[in-house]
Amino acid sequence: MGNPIIDLLTNTYFLEIVVFPGLTSIAILGALLGWLERKLTARVQLRIGPQYASPAGGILQMFADIIKLLFKEVTIPEGADTFFFIMAPVTALIIGAALLGLIPFAPGIQIANIQVGLPVFLAIVTLSPTLVLLAGWSANSKFPFIGGLRALFQQTAYEIPLWLSTLGVVMVAGTLSLTGIVQYQQNSGWLIVPQLLGALLFIITSTAEMERLPFDLPEAESEIMMGWQAEYPGPLFMLVQGPAFVKLYAFSALFTTLYLGGYLGPSPIPPILWFFAKTLLVIVLIMLFRSTFPRVRLDQLLRQGWTTLLTLSIINIIIAYFLVVGFPAI
């Protein structure tokens, strides 16, 4: 009672959306992930990486970068479609944040606990190539448009295996709710054991969805110089980079939830720390892809996506079927 502002500030739902696992934590973690990626890539390549921005290995490098980018001039390319040029990255950021609202971080810490969490997550994910295409088109420039079209072609290659690879988990756990999937793993153990093939497919296709190496065709620096991001000026470039890290965080959290038992773990350590430890592990794994594999070509990606990945994901569904109904006696 009393002061409505204090009521609002102490409301759990408000705190969940604004502080954790909502907007503030997403912004800070996104910036820290940017630092982690640069440091990790540098260490793999025997470089030092960010160093000067703070005593602890330059951990504040991304914040320094954000401050630097904010003071740059906003220039919109000539002939560009200003509305989509600005709205596409903003919407992409909102979509990335919406994904994290569906993840159960710990018992009770989840913004939207809905019955169909997994399909909604994947459905929201399908929106992002549309935004990339619009952003690339709006810049009225060749390389961004090529990047946007590449994002579209890439989507047709990975989208179906991505949905099918999660189907195995759904069949074994018998629910579409992300909380339900975690609770199922409480009794039966982590789903990565029976669903190893599905987990592999999921991590490959989600790397393609995040447009990260080896599947970063829409923004390949060495081929089309950052692709659809090429024309973005300083502050907007920061806005464009944001969704990539937010999506990396969201997909790693989804992988943890689906295959690594989510927030489950031995009790002295609180569930939320377990969740973050596992998520960090997945993030580091995906970041190591970047410094390990060369970029695939578009035709290779399309061919492998429609043949190998699709076949393997159907095989994974067959495995899941046998796990559910029991293996036939031979």
Partner: peptide
């Protein structure tokens, strides 16, 4: 009808609108 809603987003916006834009 949450499942239908998710399906609507994935099929209509993820596929049809992208196709139209293309």
């Amino acid at each position: 009808a949450a499942y239908i809603g998710a399906f609507q987003i994935a099929v209509y916006i993820g596929a049809v609108v992208v196709l139209i834009l293309f």
